[in-house]
């Protein structure tokens, strides 16, 4: 059962190539179906037409990491303003540090 979509930031993209992940970031630039978000570094994303992104708003994406490390977005949720990115980063850190409760095979703790 691997329905998990691990929360990651830009530095993790490479190790999650080909996987479906969850990214919370801030929308930097919008260019039609492409956009750039900041989540521990810039990430280029392609968004479905029905996704409503707003510049400077925080957004949570579920998407697939392509081999060129861009992200093809499946769903996008607008989170508005007022998101504590320090907390978001702490969650990403915890996700990979204590992954037994977040993703991957059942752990042997």
């Amino acid at each position: 059962m691997s329905e998990a979509t691990p929360r990651i930031t830009a530095p993790y993209l490479e190790s999650f190539s080909g996987k479906v992940v969850r990214i919370t970031g801030k929308v930097i630039q919008l260019r039609g179906e492409n956009a750039t978000i900041d989540a521990g570094g810039h990430i280029s994303i392609s968004v479905p037409k029905d996704a409503h992104l707003a510049k400077d708003h925080a957004v949570e994406l579920v998407g697939k990491v392509s081999p060129d490390l861009t992200v093809r977005v499946l769903t996008a949720t607008d989170l508005g303003m007022g998101i504590d990115f320090a907390a978001v980063d702490a969650v990403v850190d915890a996700t990979h540090r204590y992954k037994e409760i977040f993703y991957g095979e059942e752990s042997g703790y």
């Binding site: 504590d84 204590y98 977040f102």
Partner: peptide, 21 residues
């Protein structure tokens, strides 16, 4: 209503997990 609650919850779950393990 506030997405920060999601971050808060995941960190709290981690803290409690570490408390028990």
């Amino acid at each position: 209503t506030d997405y920060n609650e999601v971050s808060y919850h995941l960190l709290e779950a981690t803290a409690v997990h570490l408390h028990y393990t």
